[in-house]
Design a protein around this nucleic acid. Sequence first.
DNA 1: GACGCGTGGGC
DNA 2: TGCCCAAGCGT
Length: 351
Amino acid sequence: MRKPDSRSLLDWYDRHRRDLPWRARAGATTDPYAVWLSEIMLQQTTVQAVKSYYLKFLTLWPTVDALASAPLDDVMKAWAGLGYYSRARNLHACAGVVAREHGGRFPPDEAELLLLPGVGPYTAAAIAAIAFGRRAVVVDGNVERVAARLFAISQTMPQAKAAIRAAVDAFTPKNRAGDFAQGMMDLGATICTPRNPACGLCPFMPACAAHASGEMERYPVRTPKEKRPQRAGAAFFLERSDGAVLVRTRPPRGLLGGMTEVPGTPWSGDFDLAKAADAAPVKANWRLLPGGVDHIFTHFALRLSVFAAKARVGSKAPAGMRWATHDDLADEAFPTVMRKVIAHAQNRAEF
DNA sequence: GACGCGTGGGC
DNA sequence: TGCCCAAGCGT
């Protein structure tokens, strides 16, 4: 079997690189702000999901100084629907640090990038390599998979991370480290995929230990996951006759931190629907709507029962809550699960 | 080092 | 359908 060669990957990248909104033309340099913004959005998130958000953010805030000057609420609203909302909070905090402490310019040094909020080992290396041309060892999920297969690393994850990183380090070229990193990621996303890898199109096929063994999908080796627990709760959809909806803001940290929600019960594994109406935020003629809302989070599945009632235009919002007017409803920082609740209630308004 | 943290798409 | 996973980070 041949030794793998970074040159063959760079040649492949020059011919097959994906055209992405945040990616500069071949040979051109990229605005570090654009690289940073895209990398934060791409954390655990698919390219397809990121594209429209990336373009929206660049339009709303073309520079890191503009983003730093924006109210956090506006950033949370613009991020709504993309998930992992602590990223949005850290994004805003990071923009502030870069604007105030670095004169509006991202530091080119990997160790300094690592100090920024929301920037971890992967993102610091990616920005250093892609935006500044520094040699850095860039290891994301794609690179892990490519390297684990190429070198048949048989330890289970995450224990294998050290060996994978060492292998990628030894394999990363001094020049074009940014293109090398993006090439490894493009290869993982389009050829060396988790299932049914297209080995016939891979520049590493003659050098790949996993391909030689015929067990490509065995790598990286993972331990099976626990079953996802189920939780349940109730949401209370109170709508005024002018279309305003009663909402509140979640605490800044934790699940859906800082996002807007319809008031409701806690979500628990032993939710009792019979007692749910006692938790309503105001006295009203609450009716339990038929059906419910199902939503899957990373670590639990949720089923929400939805109660609905009407309120007069003059009704005051209880302490800690507010009315989201009909016209502003679409712009609220609702996470997807809350958009489902609202759509469910509005679709069943006749009940 | 393990866990908490969203959402949507592919098969 | 249920499960896996996606350019990870903070605690």
